[in-house]
Structure formats: C-alpha cells, structure tokens
Design a protein around this nucleic acid. Sequence first.
DNA 1: GCTCTGCGCAGAGGA
Length: 888
Amino acid sequence: MNVRGPVVEARDARTVETSRGTSELAEVLVRPERGAGDPVQVTLWGKWTETADLLEAGMELLVTDVEKGEFRGETQYATTGESAVVVEPDFLVDVTDIRGWVQCPRIYYLNKLSGVPLKYPVVKGTVVHEVFDDLLRGRDLAQSIDERVAEAALDIGLLGETADAVAEDVRQNAAAIQGWLQQGALGETDSWRSEQTLLSERFGIKGRADAVRRGTPVELKTGKNTSRDPRFQDKVQAACYALLLADDVAEAPDTGTLLYTKNTALDRSEASGDLSPAKDFSIGPGFLQFVLRQRNEIAAAEYDLTVPTGYEADAKCEYCFEQDTCMVVAGRLDQESKAGQIGEPLPDEERAYFERFYRAIEAERREVHAEYRKLWEQSAAERADDDRALIDLEPLGREGVSGGRWRLSARRTSDAVSKIREGDRVLASDGHPTRGTAELATVESLGEEVVVVADEPLDLRRVDVYPSEIGVDRRLSGLHDAVLRGDPDRKDVLFGRRDPAFDGDERTYIDNNAAQNEAVNRAVTAEDFALVHGPPGTGKTYTLARTVRALVEDGERVLLSAFTNRAVDNAIEALEEQGFTDVVRWGSESGVREDMQEYRLERSGDPEERAGALREARVIAATTAACGSRALKAQSFDVAVVDEAGQLTEPGTFLAANLADRFVLVGDHEQLPPVVRAENDLQESLFERLIETYPDAGVMLDRQYRMSQRVQYFSSREFYDGALRPASGEVAARRLADLPGVDADVLPPELRDPVSFVDPDGTATGNSNPAEADRVAEIVAAYREAGVDADDIGVIAPFRAQVAEISRRLPDVAVDTVDRFQGSAKEVIVVSFVATGDLDSPIFEDHRRVNVALTRAKRALALVGDEGALRSVPFYERMLEWAARPER
DNA sequence: GCTCTGCGCAGAGGA
C-alpha cells in the first residue's frame, strides 16, 4: 500500500539501535487523501533519510509499498525494502536531466538556461541514433546512412562539414552496432522496441529509451569511453529507463546495456580483450533507489527554485566543459558556485528581472506538467467530456509508410469537441495512454476518420494531447540570452536607463496615409527599436511589409517574425502583393500554409547548398518560437520585424529580438494578450510595456479601412480613446445594401440597423446555449435571405462547445472562437455570448477578446445574448447601449 | 469554470 499527501512536518534524521544493528531513520508527517485526512506518520529508513532531508512542509510526498504498524493506538507507516519515496511526484523529471544532475547539478541548471548548441558531435550522434533505429527496423544500412545524413544536411552544412565525411564517420559507428546485432546470442529470438516514449506516474520521470531488448534498456552512446566500465551517468540514464519500464522497483529489469559505438577500433588497437562495444551491467534495487533519490533532489530544488551550487554532488570542475559558462553565469547573477565566478555582476534591476521571469517561466512549466498528470489521472469514462482526448475510437486499420512508420486510422463514435488539431503531437493508444500500449504519433487528419502516423503499429482507440515543454524551454533561453548575453546598450533602453534613439531623414514611403508613413520612418531610423500600434483594419500588415522592403532596400538583413504561423504567412503574402518575393520561410511543413510552401527552406539535401540558402537569405521569416531553434540562433540580422507583438510574452519577444541589432514591434495590446497558463509576469507583452514607457517610440495607425462608422464606434471609444477613425468617407458609410445582390429591406426589423442586439431568451447549459444557437442560425438565414453570401458571414462564440453547437446548424458558414478569427474580417459578424442569468463567469475572459470579436465586422454586426446577464457588467451595458442607439 | 499557439518529439556529446 502507498501513502501520499502533502508533508506537514519532516523531523531530523536520527540514528537508532535495532535488533539488526544501527540504523538511520527520519519521521515525516503526511496528510493523506489529497491533503484532506488526518496527518499520519511515515518513517523513512536508511538511505531514504537523504530524501527526508530535502522535505519541506507543503511538498507532496509519495511513499510506496509501506508497512503498516501501530504505536500507542496510532496507525503509523514505514518504508520496506520494496518502497520508493518520491518527492513532488507530479513534477515530471526528464531522464536526461537526471543524467545531467548526476554529472553536476550546475550542468543541469546551465542546460536548462541555454540548451544544447550546434556542435558536430551532437549532430553526428543524432544521425547515428537514427541509423541505429533504422537497423532495428530491418532497413538497409547504406540506404539508411545516405538518407539520414541527407536529412541532417542543414546542420551539417552550418558546421562546415561535408556529407561524405559525416557518412564515413557514421558508417564506422554503425559497424559497431551491426557487429553487435549479428552476435549469435542476440539473434532472432530477441524482441525489440526502439525509441519508446515512457512516462511514470509513480516515479515522476519521463523519457525516451533508445531501445528495449527483451524488456531491458539499451542505451546507445557515440562518444568516447576510454575506460573499461560504462560511464556512471550513462548507467544512471539506463537505470532510469529500467524504472520507467517496470513502474515498480521490485519488478524493474535487473540489467542494462550500454553500446559505445566508438569503442571497437579503440579496443582493438589497445588489444584490451574486450572487443565488444556493448557493456552489460547489472541494475540492483540499491542503484534504482539511488537514481530515484537523485530525481528527488531535482524535484525538491525545483519546488522552491533553488539554484544549484555544485556542492550538492561530487562535481569536479577541472575537466568540466561547462566550467567557463558556469563561472560566467555565476558571476553575472552573483550565484554561489563551486567553479567560482568571473566578471561583474549584473545591475540589481537586471538580476531582479531575470529572477522574476525565471520564476514565471517555471510556473508555466508546472502547468505543462499538470497536463501530463491529466493523461493518467482520469478514467476513460471521465475523459469523455475532457477536450484533451479523442476516446472510444473504432480502429479501421494500419498501413506501413516510409521510414518503417505506420499510418493508423480509426472512426469516431461521437462528435465530442476536442482541442486536438492536425499536425499535433499526440499519444496514440489502444485504450489508455499510460496503462495500455501507447506510441507518440503525429495527427495527419481529423475528419470523420482520425489518422495518425506512429513508429509502431497499434489498434487506434484513443488519442491524447501530448504536452511539450519546448515552449517553456525556448522562452527560458530567450530570457537567458537577452539578460545574460544581451548587448549592454540595448539593455540600457530596456531597463529604462536611456531613451531609445532615432537617426535619419524623413522619407516618403507611403503617400496616402500619414500614420503609416510615419511608422515606416520610425522603423527605418530606429537605432534601438520602434513600435507600431495597429488597431483593427488599419493596414498593419501592409505597413509591416513596406517596412521590410524599405529595410532591404537600405541593404539590411531582416528577420521577419510573429507569434503564429498564420501571421508569418500573412506577412509574406503582403510582401508578395508588393512584388517582393526574396524570402526564406523557416518552419515545419505542417505549420506553413499550403501556398507558402514554395518559400519554405527544405532542410535535407546537400549540406553546403542548404546552409548557403539560409546564410544568404536577405529576409528570413519564422515564428518567434522557431527563432529559438539551433539553426536560427546561429544566424544574425540587422533588424527583427515582429508582428502580433501584443500576443508575445517578454521572453518570447526576445527570441526574435536577440538575433538582431535593432527591432520593430508591430501589434495591438488592445487585442489578444499572450497565451499564458499560470497567472504571472508573462501576461503583459514587451510591446505593451515599451509603449507605456516610451510612447514617443511608437506610432499608432489611426485610419481603419474595414468597419463602417457605426460598427467601429464602440471599439474606438472603449479601446482607442476615440482616436481610431474610418480612413475615408466611403469606409465610414459602408452599408450592407451596397453589396451586390443584397436587399437590406428584406431583413427583419431587429436586424435593420448595422449594429443590432437580439435576446433569444435561451438558457446556458455549461458552455453552450442551444436556444441561442437556434436564434443565431435564424439570424444567419435572414441575412442569407437578404442576399448576403455565406462566405461573407462569420459567427463568433466564446466557447468551443457553443461553436460546435452552432456549426451543426450552419455547415456552410465560418463559425469559430475569437482567437481563431483574429486577423480576418467578414461583411457580417454574429456574436453569440452564451451566458444567461448573471455573469459570475466571464464570457470573453478579457474585454480585449470582445474588441477582437466586434471589430471583425465590416458592415453589420448582430449581438446575440441574454440582456439581463450582459447588463450586470458595465462594459457590456455600454455595449448594449451602443447597439440600441442607431445614431452612433 | 474558458479560450489559445508554438515547438523536428527528446536527446544527440565534448576530456
């Protein structure tokens, strides 16, 4: 049996005499039943006292396989030989992080801050691993090497290596693998699984094993290992996989294999007797418990964000590759470090800033981990109304595709809504993501049929969102690069020690819109940064494209970035419309829009040629997250032009800005804010902060080309101090009746005015409102009757459930949530507010979302909702008054 | 109790 709950008190360890001699123990008070029960005492024996030393009141503790006892009428628990003690089990520690921590806790910390840079041994190692995987799948060696080297062409080229040299290197490593595979004992009776994703609910560990042979882990290492025994951290890594495979210390495999592919030639020359690159080693329960205690040290350090010093373990700094970085980071942030410090500490405000955002990013990481927890927390039945999974699928079949992968398909048995989209990484399983057979897969299509591509075949019955920490990791490296490695001159402006500078003559780039022309001038003459505030319909993307062209004409190299792929593609489209096509689009195939694929940089091919295509590009377009990728981090630019900057967190903005000498932020902080999971400092964008600090560095585009006067009035008054105005009399006077084929007189009286409000008298059940959906459908039908094309109508609702409800009634019309409407517009917009009764639940969480919804309309806007509910909030009351007064 | 996008997944290694 297990005990789990928050720690109430952890007493100091002490030594006691038992019948078997002297032992250590530590007593811990835990409040079980999710913190609701009475505290119970758990005695941690022996080495687990080391874990007990890490505990603080409030930390979650899990002790498995405890022994129950009674003392003075109280029930007590104690560890047994089988027990595992797990600190903060919900914090999923990566196997590679445990490996790093064992080498040195500072290495773990430094890897987290800056990631792994582009280096030859890493790139080669990756290719050898892929070839290993191919060999296990029975592919031809020569073909595999050619293909895998070609796929890595861009990295190889950026490193200045040739395909032939890398292929030769890989071939030598592969020879060791093949030799080992061909040894008789490892013949056809072996059962193999390669590249297996593993998650452990019990131990709070996750990772991906290179291979599993007859249930035991095999870990491939392509580096040098001159000693006879496996490297300690390699054994730790393999032992982690052993834990993950069993989910129980007693049942874990008791051996592991480390395959050092560089060893054959080395051993032969030294005639050492051990010709095999494979080193088997035993994994005893004591070792598994050691590994778990290391994992607990990480979880405990992350609980209160303790920065490791290097003294926690027997780290030897003299041979460490990270020594210089370690000392520089310690010096800059004035951290205690075993290696020492170099350089001057950062000014206090920069250190405080770093600290604040570091905490905020780590809070986000915890939220991602909470999503992993959801994978196993709920039973299949409960997950029926969870939008993170598609359940109860009926398997339709499987087919082998290139690269030894499998395409799996299934039929849906319900029309439940989910957040899973095409191109997403998911866990495909035959019933349960952690208890059944599960494989990491990519969603290919999501119609009636669900199709995914996975490494192994299985009966597809369920698909779960697979959370990723990469966004968190990227933002952390953006923060690190900006503050610790950032240009001091730029930081003077970012930290308010100097005003941003501008230099250069005013030129005419756009002759019919003064604000747009001013915006391009600011951007071109900025020595630090410029800010372009573009409310709805003001030609923000046009101005941005004109800015990029002006910069290129001046001989600058430009990074064109934005938060979403959609915005990046829109910006390229705007450049195209202005006759400029000298752009390289960096991004994944599924992220880039179909008609922009021609600009996309293919990463495989000839190394020199691929690297040249990237290096020589005058304009590179990528999402900010992609700017944190290794290849783009190796590029530098004169100017970064960033769209949708209002949706970016500060560290997210830095990912693009760090790559350039100057930056231009384009956005609107009165529209969608950054997407953040936890409440913290990441909620405000750098764009918004800079516009508030340096209003003079910005230009607001004040003429909008989209909405009629009547439609734009409320948004202009509420969000832009009335400064947003129609660009011309024609725009201001736009009416539905001006559209070809439209007869506005046919409309029912309540829809005659360009802005109308209708109360359908519905009732919200959960996040949908069927009666309101009916009314929305009638309203759309009325517009259609009056001659409006289905393509010209859009429906916006705050919740996916209501979107689904309305979509069922209106298959031909675009129905979506606000977020997915941002950036586009329709002649007619119908907004469904769903909520009824009172408004204790926020409808559009943030009024800025309402701003987006209302400003999608060009000529007509129909608001549908419960009048009583809306009137209970002043903002919505003002909205209803505007709808009720046609003179505005 | 809601909404949402991104990320070549995670890990590849150097005395």
